[in-house]
Amino acid sequence: MRNLFAFIYRFRAFLVFLLLEALCVFLIVRYNTYQGAAFFNSASRYVGQVLEFQSGITDYFRLTDVNQTLASENAALRQELMQYRQAALIDSTATLDTTYFATTDTSQAYPYMLHASRVINNSVRRMNNYLTIAKGTADGVKPGMGVVAPNGVVGRVKTVSEHYATVTSLLHSQMLISAKIKKDGTFGTIKWLGGDYRTALLDYIPLHVKPEEGDTVVTSGFNTVFPEGITVGTISSVEQEPDKSFYTIGVQLSVDFAQLSYVYVVENTRKEERDTLEQNAGILPDEQ
């Protein structure tokens, strides 16, 4: 306290000067219309800039929560869209033989659910690439589940802990995905041969089919991992080699794996039932 009094006494003249200056400014602003308006306009502008800067900082630190919320909303909307597509496929099948499915058949309910997750680790330049996502068993994620992005197929869940999971990327030498050419339904297998992370190969398309550059390639739905019709990419090249009975087809992948931020884990509520049935029948799928 003694030091405070000593400071005030030492600078008493300067402090009195500041007090008088503040009093003068107050009197000028208070009793002069023009000066008062100019002061309050300037003060409002600077206060607004300070508040805007403060709001920007607050919003920046809230971006993670905002992005997670938006990703969850997108997952719900995408799941609803996929349900409509499935309903359209059922309706088209029913037109062929109305004795197969009734329009209210609850057994044809859409079995897939989507869980939005943030990508926290990713690789694209190895021969066997993986991702790590911030979802685990606490969120219902299990090994074997498919993973997609807003633009298409990403990969399949490999290992899971309570709050995290690793994903075998489509950019993996042993990752095979059952796919088909959208326009005619001819199915084959998507695999990545290494090198460019933007392109893959569509195998086992027979020579009597007429694939063309620009044709869309989607998932076939012939497994329990990915729903039918998820985009994989577009055909970028078609070659017919004389010593092969299938085309060599290059596919431009729809997902940019170098810029993945959020993905959706695909949960098939009927996967266990179908897998058990096929295993008991001796049907072991060699691709997903």
Rank of each mutant, 00 (worst) to 15 (best):
M1L: 08
L4Y: 13
F7T: 11
I8A: 07
A13W: 09
V16K: 05
R30F: 15
Q35V: 15
L51F: 13
L51E: 13
G56R: 12
R62Q: 10
T64Y: 12
V66Q: 15
E73A: 15
N74E: 14
A75I: 02
Q79P: 04
A94P: 01
T99W: 04
T104D: 15
D105F: 05
Y110P: 00
M113D: 12
A116P: 02
V119L: 07
R126C: 04
N129R: 00
Y130K: 10
I133R: 05
A134S: 14
G140R: 02
V141F: 03
P143R: 01
V147G: 08
V148D: 03
V148A: 06
G152C: 02
V153W: 00
T168K: 08
D184W: 08
G185Q: 09
L193E: 12
G194V: 02
D203F: 06
I205A: 04
L207W: 12
T219L: 01
G221E: 01
G221L: 04
F222C: 09
T224M: 00
V225K: 00
I230R: 01
I235K: 04
V238H: 03
E239N: 14
E239Q: 15
K244E: 14
V255Q: 05
D256V: 08
A258L: 09
Q259V: 12
V265D: 01
L277E: 12
L277K: 10
I283P: 00
